[in-house]
């Protein structure tokens, strides 16, 4: 596999079994800085498991995950997030009883030097930091079109808005690598287009994106490169045009399409 220099993320020989069943076996791929790479494949192909291993929620049985010169394997999720890898969740994991603003404030603390004591005494550093965060939050919610809903409870947002909030929240951590797990699931075509624009905007701001997605139309339009998985293995890796022609990919999809 291509292991060129300057890779932002490099996954090699990753494997994970659950109770003897292989969820992921021998998966290797790389993501370069500034790319949008899509991870596609039928349900149960192991895509989310790969995400969970990169972000530390599962520990791989074998393999390594190199990110910007660090080995992520064995690190806890919050440490990986602090290194600049943020994610969204397939089944939405918003802080439901918090406002949109509150959700964003949590994420803004990813690199915050504020301590519990400073917060209790409301030091000057705390006030300064909170003003900065408020500006950052304003920019991000503008970008995802949630300015008006800043004070609404996360649980009261529409489904599409909840997905966009998750993306904005992940961005607020100051991530350099963003892992989006099915960001358009259950969305209308118009909302899908919004996500497409958003993804491009995020990429143009210098953030690398790894995307799990079922909407092929979106994948083909947005991706610089596509990785295809089936039954826990990688079966193809290439540019959208190549993937479209790939016989194995067609078989994997047609085989499960019925």
């Amino acid at each position: 596999m291509a292991t060129a220099q300057g890779m932002m993320l490099e996954v090699s020989a990753l494997a994970k079994n659950f109770a003897g069943v292989a969820a992921v076996s021998d998966v290797s791929f790389g993501v370069s800085e500034g790319e949008i790479v899509s991870l596609i494949g039928p349900n149960g192909a192991g895509k989310t498991s790969v995400f969970n291993m990169i972000t530390g929620f599962y520990s791989p049985d074998t393999g390594s995950i190199q990110y910007a010169g660090c080995e992520l394997r064995g690190l806890e999720p919050f440490r990986i997030a602090r290194l600049g890898v943020a994610r969204t969740f397939q089944n939405l994991e918003l802080f439901r009883d918090m406002t949109v603003e509150g959700n964003m404030q949590v994420a803004c603390q990813c690199h915050s030097p504020i301590s519990l004591g400073a917060a209790m005494f409301r030091s000057a550093a705390v006030r300064r930091r909170e003003t900065e965060d408020a500006e950052r939050i304003a920019r991000l919610v503008d970008a995802v079109g949630l300015r008006q809903q800043l004070g609404s409870m996360a649980s009261q947002l529409s489904y599409g808005a909840q997905r966009r909030l998750e993306i904005a929240r992940a961005m607020a951590t100051g991530a350099r690598l963003l892992l989006l797990d099915e960001p358009t699931a259950g969305m209308s075509p118009a909302e899908v287009d919004e996500i497409l624009d958003l993804a491009k905007k995020v990429r143009d701001s210098g953030v690398t994106i790894l995307l799990i997605e079922h909407n092929m139309n979106l994948v083909m339009r947005v991706s610089d490169r596509i990785i295809v998985m089936d039954h826990g293995m990688k079966i193809a890796d290439g540019e959208p045009a190549q993937i479209r022609r790939d016989a194995r990919v067609r078989q994997a999809y047609l085989g499960t399409a019925g």
Binding site: F57, P77, F89, L94, F95, R96
Partner: peptide, 10 residues
């Protein structure tokens, strides 16, 4: 609300 998401946010 979500220990998982909290960890994911650092």
């Amino acid at each position: 609300d979500s220990a998982k998401a909290a960890a994911g946010m650092g």
